[in-house]
């Protein structure tokens, strides 16, 4: 196996993909499941191609991106400053820790009806629930990052004459950035999950979640698989995007 990965180099991860597609194709040939329920990989890729080249899937794809991006944006605007404030005072953090932890552990789907009752079945509700879930994850991670800021670095800033506020903006903020990105990556995954679920149930007319459910009810299986595939690709891309941003701007992380 070692020599195989040497030969293939950066293409090694493709092995898993090829195996998955092969197993799927074989399962299709031997008809493990009815062809209606499990179409061939090819028919799925054709559906992806058709849907993404100007079809409904492309529109739904952008709607989901829009909602998820807005959610993570709002979650960051709420979660990062609060995380810094809570994290910079141990007493303050201890006093809110239980509440944060409790709501962080509460499945966001359980609070859908609450937000529905408050905001109605519109687009805003989906974004609110996703923001709620993601903001808690971000807050928790940022606070953790701030609390674990290297004591020496804070002391160094202090002996150099930095006032308290500058210690916060010049040192704490940067010290917490690696952990903040952990929070953002987890947050965006969660926001996407919540958005997709919300698109399935709450009076939705578009989005990938709606697309998946719609095609399932119409028994358009290749299209449904295509929507699932696109949702997966979207989640993966969001994660990758944040990793790339992190590597670019938090270049000192782990060094």
């Amino acid at each position: 196996m070692k020599s195989l990965s040497k030969i293939l180099g950066p293409f090694t991860p493709l092995i898993g993909v090829i195996i998955l597609l092969l197993v799927w194709q074989i399962a299709f040939w031997v008809e493990v499941v009815d062809h209606v329920l499990l179409p061939s990989p090819t028919s799925m890729f054709i559906a992806v191609w058709q849907g993404m080249s100007g079809g409904q899937l492309l529109f739904d794809f952008f709607r989901t991106i829009e909602r998820t991006a807005l959610s993570i944006l709002y979650a960051g605007i709420i979660g990062i400053p609060l995380g810094i404030i809570f994290g910079s005072s141990v007493g303050l953090y201890r006093s809110v820790e239980f509440v944060v932890d409790f709501f962080r552990s509460t499945p966001a789907s359980a609070v859908f009806p609450l937000f529905l009752a408050i905001s109605g079945p519109g687009d805003a509700t989906k974004i609110q629930v996703a923001t709620f879930g993601a903001a808690l994850v971000i807050l928790f991670n940022v606070a953790y990052g701030v609390m674990n800021a290297r004591k020496t670095r804070l002391q160094a800033a202090k002996v150099m004459g930095a006032p308290r506020f500058r210690v916060l903006t010049d040192v704490m903020l940067f010290e917490s950035l690696p952990q903040t990105f952990v929070g953002l990556r987890n947050g965006v995954s969660l926001a996407l999950i919540i958005v997709i679920v919300a698109e399935m149930f709450i009076g939705s007319v578009d989005g990938l979640g709606h697309n998946v459910l719609d095609n399932q009810m119409l028994f358009e299986m290749p299209r449904m698989y295509a929507a699932i595939f696109v949702a997966g690709a979207l989640g993966y891309s969001f994660n990758l995007l944040f990793l790339l941003i992190e590597r670019r701007y938090v270049h000192w992380s782990g060094r």
Partner: peptide, 13 residues
């Protein structure tokens, strides 16, 4: 003031 642990005293960013 010069710290023993330069790695943790300098600002890597």
């Amino acid at each position: 003031y010069v710290f023993q642990n330069y790695r943790e005293a300098l600002f890597p960013w």
